[in-house]
Design a protein around this nucleic acid. Sequence first.
DNA 1: CTGTTATGCCAACTTACATCA
DNA 2: TGTGATGTAAGTTGGCATAAC
Length: 213
Amino acid sequence: MKNKNKDKNKNRKRFSDEQIKSLESIFQSESRLEPRRKVQVAKELGLQPRQVAIWFQNKRARRKSKQLERDYNILGASYTALASRFESLKKEKQALALKVEKITRIQLQTLKAEECEGVPAAAAAATNSSETIKTKPKSRPRILIQGSGEGLGFMSDEYLGMEEADEEAAKLMSDMVEDGGCDGSQEDWGCLDSDGVLFDQPSSDCQWWDFWA
DNA sequence: CTGTTATGCCAACTTACATCA
DNA sequence: TGTGATGTAAGTTGGCATAAC
């Protein structure tokens, strides 16, 4: 500020409590003043119209600043909650991935054992149920997790009807459904392909990519 | 009708001072 | 009592709208 203004500022006085109280009260109902109203308020409070105008300007600026601070805090809290949810989903996903891996391993072992005994997988499956013949794959058993809308519900039913040798895998699948970590909705399971492998997510966000990787 | 200028208001930023811990 | 932090009245600047010419 220039020296000329320094001198002006020397005479500056804080407004009285009464003046502030009145200004606050007016500001509550009208944050902007019409020129005529400004002159009227100035007269009532014994201030210059310019002082009233400046007070309202500063008041609007202070209000905006406080609102920004509030918004910032709300946003911060929201972010913290989201990050927490993200971490828990990440752990849940890891646990589910482990289960899927285990099931796959068991299925492969079963298949190998059957092949060693000279019983084709499809034939073995065919002995179980005529209902499942149509849906069973011919080569290796695929873990059918699809966004069908029925989620793991249908999957567990199907696997529960498998050979005894698959009981452990079926139980694991059943556990996964009952875990409650996922309701088996399409939204939750649509990310799994027919081989039980997670799809890549269509996101360029590094953090989210890491999550799904 | 169009371009220019003056005026006023405002937001954003800054300064200087009063007040308080 | 000195000092740094904070609040606030007022100054500065630049953008925008409007009216007068």
